[in-house]
Amino acid sequence: MKVKLKVWRQKSRNTPGEFRTYESPGLNENMSFLEMLDVVNEDIANRGEDPIAFDHDCREGICGTCSCVINGKPHGPHKGVATCQTYMRSFRDGDTIVVEPWRAAAFPIIKDLVVDRSAFDRIQHAGGFISVRTGAAPDANSIPVSKENSDLAMDAAQCIGCGACVAACKNASAMLFVAAKVSHLGLLPQGQPERYKRVKAMVAQMDTEGFGSCTVTGSCEAVCPKEISLDFIARMNRDYGLALLKGEPKKIAGGVAG
């Protein structure tokens, strides 16, 4: 099979970009979308042109590095998969496929289809952690976790931080990502001590990064390769409200040891 690619080409962050059209060489329909890009790039490179830059790493749907908006939908036409698990058999011979980078002010383009997602890292740094003493691993099951909570926490922990939620949202909102991180730790006993501090810090960082806010359209949930539910955004909203009601921890007057 052969396809036509309409790809966003942009040299660097501050240069203007444009769509360029490429004809693919003959393809195997069982190639992944990224393998197709490799083949097209080889062709481009052989002609002495600059190949299309795109993000990829594990190519098995667990790292969250790949990031193309394919025909208007992040990660391509299927539900619950990343771009690396999208195969050419999902397209027809002769199709024109539009390939774009994630588009958000908080995700500046580095080159072509590669965007800078370090905004997500900074949100994680703000509160996406728990403070524990390191040392010998504690006994398994020494802290009981209810089945319901562990299931929910695992659902949230599925988030691979790819940013498809931001790419799909009409407001470029990162709430599904932040909600998944807040819920993942907030549902487990180890995450309780910092639960309310965490949600405030992560939401504040999210706002600072310039993401939009949630209008409950459901686009993020629909494109998420890990099918993270909007339920988690509700959970984050609830935790944030509780955090505001609880206020800052009170300082104890004259509180010194001894």
């Binding site: 774009e100 407001n171 909102s173 686009s219």
Partner: peptide, 18 residues
């Protein structure tokens, strides 16, 4: 704030899943 969060729009503005 929502408009500012996406300064460059997509090729096809037909949104997905909303």
């Amino acid at each position: 704030a929502n408009r500012a969060a996406r300064p460059v729009s997509y090729h096809d503005t037909e949104p997905y899943g909303s």
